[in-house]
Amino acid sequence: MTLDIRENEESEVVVVELCGELDSSSVAVFTLKFREITGKRASKKYVLDMKGLEFISSAGWTAFLNECKELRAAGGDLKIAAMQADAKRVYGLVGIDSVIESHEAVKDAVKSYAKNG
């Protein structure tokens, strides 16, 4: 039930690596740390690297939807990349695919920001 967050900045886009499990017990940690990161930066373009995320529950998806909403309100956006199989399933099933953009590879997600300017 731990969650590690690592960040690295590529061009103007901030990539946040998530590792571990994101369920109702670690959701507060995610929200706190993610807001710490967004608070420090002017850039509002984010990519969540989910390669290391072994598990995500509905509480986790709710948190992603929330942060996405906040970033969009500030003129930015949140995209996700490198989902594991289970996460991908829920992503399509619940319909999050109609709200948050996803990519297979992190660099594709980063590039997609440039395309839209």
Partner: peptide
């Protein structure tokens, strides 16, 4: 009926 009432990012399956 519910869409407007569900606040923020919550959803129900």
């Amino acid at each position: 009926g519910l869409q407007a009432r569900i606040s923020g990012s919550m959803f129900a399956t």
